[in-house]
Design a protein around this nucleic acid. Structure first.
Length: 820
RNA sequence: GCGAGAAUGGCGGAAUUGGUAGACGCGCUAGACUUAGGAUCUAGUACCGAGAGGUGUCGGGGUUCGAGUCCCCGUUCUCGCACCA
């Protein structure tokens, strides 16, 4: 028999849509389960294997939970703003709005063919003014509280995309999107003050069930380090240099100070006779790309400023240099250099012949031993006045205390995390709701004026400024305060703003008088299960956590974290390489869905291997899954006459069943248990393997009573339904049910009494080597098993004539005899 | 350089707390059926060996009655971060 997947799949897709099978009643919060897959970035019209791999298995998990009786909410939406649509417009002249809406329409159709249980009434897209209106509203709430602010700052600029990038979007010194080398530029930009939440973003990691590596990445990104801020006075000047150090215990070993070349103090303290060299050096570092500058293999460079500073703890006069190994973006932009105990300072001091003073003595060495490299570990403090003799790790707190008592500095915690730059000089994004007035300055738009809609007619060509700046009608407005001519902020927001709170918007998208329904958000947030790629470990997942905490602080949600549990799916590669249009190695899912159907393709993706591991694409094994699907379908057709479902009990007493019935009843329940546990933990490959194992044993059904046949098939269908939803529904119907299996999920219960086997095979080892397996009644004690063991000549062959030293017995598992 | 993870048949991959290594699937071999088909079914399939048996989870040590699993040393690969003071 052929498996008519085309008919079956379209039939059920229509059924689900007509009956709104998967619309969730959000007012019912009992057993609520909010499952979400990261929404779609509609940069093209075609879904690729990665999309299927992301959405299919996650949907199977959600379906499984629904069959377990959870009130599951699984929405879908489109992350619709962003650069690709606009780049496309520049290249081909298609308006971003037109191409995006077209893509979304195409994608929607493909998603429906995937057969996921999305609640289509909750669908959203971020380019909808009713959505981005609330981006603007949240922006204004942040602005009011000083968390959205504008400053002139050195920013990452992509010369190709002609826009500013967030630090997170710079990869290896290149634009994450187009690969062009990023340059530094000073611009007035809008920032969100995510740094205010640095400590809480770290703390919150304890409250969420996320992959360990993702939490580590975020911790690393936030980059908390504890130490001290120390003030150095500049000789013959009122200026002071503040440095951040994690090693206050080495303070007596400071032999020079380094400023970042961009540091504003450089102009003030550089001595006239050094000015030419300093300017030249600053010019040359400016020309370096991010990659060249941050390369660790690069030799250290720098020039002296001619000024000197005073080390507060010992009054020593030390030179002030500038060098590009001091980063303007970290700490204070100034470094106190301790060559004896820091590798970079050691390298620099050696190159420029600066003094090296040992202040931490390595255990087992002498003070006068020559240093051949920096000693950075813990040792004993020397040359450090009253601190001599202390262990350096203990010295840290003592020195900080001394600094504070004498007003030389203070203990300080520093973070690598920087504020989130959200301005983009591009069109296809959320307009920033600020008006610039020459007399009133920055004026926020009234909330009642929102949304500030994106005008349709704009000139997209690249010019280093936002396309919106060239739209006279949009840009020229009257100042809401004084009424004089003013201009709108011409920039748009980073698209990561859109994705930072969309999971809340799903909770009642039609409720347009606020960003989201607060009452429902408090009942349904956080998202219980969130699934998406590892590439979002830092950016999206950190920003969303920040937003959630902010929304909590203004009283809109009562939870601390947006995503309680997080799972990353792996990446599907092709011949070891990431699939991409430019490489031309994209595998088209249609090729397989048209040949095998959706269910087979979805199941094969799940069966390939561990979900979080992904893997290299090969269709080699797909026929195995196809065979399983056909065999299942045939099986149900074989028993299609079993329609008397009412006689099926919830469980049976196995002692009254025939041997075959008992065997299959037990196997079925064992499979239910195994399958459930595997799906629960996203181990789809082994879950499906357990179904295949079961079907391999279903031949004995022939000799079972109708009741048992019915019992087994019902439950088999309930396991098929999550992993092959169309097939599951069809099989459920074949055995006489009218409703969708997902509408009356009752059959996912394991009969625990049936799980235990009567007999077990005990492995008999002699000196740890397997010599025989002996069947014995379940839970037999050693005394009962022993005679069986020594009656087996496969065992005695190895024990006869030897002395038995020891016998180890593990119930139902092992009998190990140690002989000499 | 720092951090995280991984390495099991011809292939994808299975193996509760250490307890019968190779589940399930692909492929392969043989057979059955046959309107000769890349369909289906049955049996087999880690390696060496005729067999008894031996050897096997990247390499080398160790703990243990027993190690894919735990500990130490090393190799290779993947992924993050990378002059963060």
């Amino acid at each position: 028999m052929r498996y008519p997947f085309t008919e079956i799949e379209s039939k059920w897709q229509k059924f689900w849509e007509d009956n709104k099978t998967y619309n969730t009643d959000l007012s019912k919060t009992e057993k609520k389960l909010y499952t979400l897959v990261m929404f779609i970035y509609p940069s093209g019209a075609k879904l690729h294997i990665g999309h299927w791999y992301n959405y299919g298995p996650t949907d199977s998990w959600a379906r499984f939970k629904k069959l377990q009786g959870y009130n599951v909410f699984e929405p879908i939406g489109y992350d619709a703003f962003g650069l690709p649509a606009e780049n496309n417009a520049i290249k081909y002249g298609i308006h971003p709005q037109d191409s995006t809406l077209k893509n979304i329409a195409d994608i929607r159709e493909q998603l429906k063919k995937m057969g996921c249980m999305y609640d289509w009434d909750a669908e959203l897209m971020t380019c909808d003014p009713e959505y981005y209106k609330w981006n603007q509203w949240i922006f204004l709430q942040m602005y009011k509280r000083g968390l959205a602010y504008r400053k002139n700052a050195p920013v990452n600029w992509c010369p190709n995309d002609q826009t500013v990038l967030a630090n997170e979007q710079v990869v290896d010194g290149c634009c994450e999107r187009c690969g062009t080398t990023v340059i530094q530029k000073n611009l007035y930009q809008w920032f969100f003050k995510i740094t205010d939440y640095a400590e809480e973003l770290l703390d919150g990691h304890n409250k969420i069930d996320w992959p360990h590596e993702t939490i580590l990445k975020q911790q690393n990104w936030i980059g908390k380090s504890e130490g001290a801020e120390v003030t150095f006075k500049v000789v013959g000047s009122d200026e002071i240099i503040k440095v951040f150090t994690t090693r206050p215990d080495t303070l007596f070993g400071v032999t020079y100070v380094v400023l970042a070349p961009e540091h504003p103090l450089v102009d003030k303290i550089t001595k006239p006779e050094f000015k030419a060299d300093v300017d030249e050096y600053r010019e040359s570092t400016k020309k370096l790309t991010e990659i060249e500058r941050t390369s660790t293999v690069k030799e250290k460079t720098g020039v002296p400023t001619g000024s000197y500073a005073i080390n507060p703890v010992n009054g020593e006069k030390i030179p002030v240099w500038i060098a590009d190994y001091a980063l303007i973006t970290y700490g204070t932009g100034c470094v106190m250099a301790v060559p004896a105990h820091d590798e970079r300072d050691f390298e620099f001091a050696t190159k420029f012949n600066l003094p090296i003073t040992k202040v931490i003595l390595q255990d087992g060495t002498n003070e006068n031993d020559e240093l051949i490299s920096a000693f950075t570990d813990v040792g004993t403090m020397i040359n450090s006045a009253q601190f001599n003799g202390l262990r350096s790790d203990e010295g840290i707190t003592k020195v900080i205390k001394y600094l504070e008592e004498n007003n030389f500095g203070k203990g300080k915690i520093n973070y690598r995390l920087r504020d989130w730059l959200i301005s983009r000089q591009r069109y296809w994004g959320t307009p920033i709701p600020i008006i610039h007035c020459s007399t009133c300055g920055e004026v926020p738009v009234e909330e009642s004026e929102l949304p500030i809609e994106l005008p349709y007619d704009v000139d997209f060509k690249l010019g280093g400024e936002s396309p919106l700046a060239r739209n006279e009608k949009y840009i020229n407005v009257k100042c809401p305060k004084c009424g004089t001519a003013a201009k709108r902020d011409p920039d748009t927001m980073d698209t990561f703003v859109d994705s930072s709170w969309y999971y809340l918007r799903f909770l009642d998208p039609k409720f347009s008088t606020s960003a989201f329904n607060k009452e429902l958000a408090n009942k349904w947030a956080p998202v219980d299960m969130y699934v998406g790629g590892k590439e979002h470990s830092v950016m999206h997942l950190l920003y969303a956590r920040f937003f959630h905490k902010f929304l909590r602080d203004i009283g809109l949600v009562n939870s601390d974290e947006p995503f309680a549990k997080l799972v990353h799916q792996g990446v599907i590669t092709k011949d070891g390489a990431k699939m991409s249009k430019s490489k031309g190695n994209v595998v088209n899912p249609d090729e397989f869905t048209s040949k095998y159907g959706t269910d087979v393709f979805r199941m094969y993706l799940m069966f390939m291997g561990p979900y979080d591991q992904g893997g290299d694409w090969s269709d080699k094994g797909i026929s195995g899954v196809e065979r399983f699907v056909i065999r299942s379908y045939e099986l149900f057709n074989l028993y299609s006459e079993i329609i008397n479902q009412t006689s099926v009990k919830a469980k049976y007493d196995i002692s009254v069943l025939s041997d075959n019935e008992k065997k299959i009843y037990r196997k079925l329940n064992q499979t239910l248990k195994k399958f459930g546990e595997e799906i629960e933990h996203f181990r789809f490959n082994t879950a499906i393997a357990s179904l295949m194992e079961l079907i391999n044993e279903l031949k004995v059904l022939e000799s079972c009573s109708k009741e048992i046949q019915s019992y087994v098939l019902q439950r088999f269908a309930s396991m098929l339904a999550p992993v092959a939803p169309h097939l599951g529904e069809e099989c459920w119907q074949i055995i006489g049910n009218e409703k969708s299996i997902f509408q009356n999920p009752v059959v996912f219960e394991v009969d625990k009494d049936a799980l235990i086997e009567d007999t077990v095979n005990i492995a008999v080892q002699v000196n740890g080597k397997l010599r025989a397996t002996i069947p014995a009644p379940m839970n037999s004690e050693q005394d009962a098993v022993k005679p069986l063991v020594f009656a087996d000549e496969k065992v005695t062959k190895f024990t006869d004539g030897k002395t038995i030293v020891k016998e180890i017995f593990v119930k139902n598992k092992i009998y190990n005899i140690v002989v000499k």
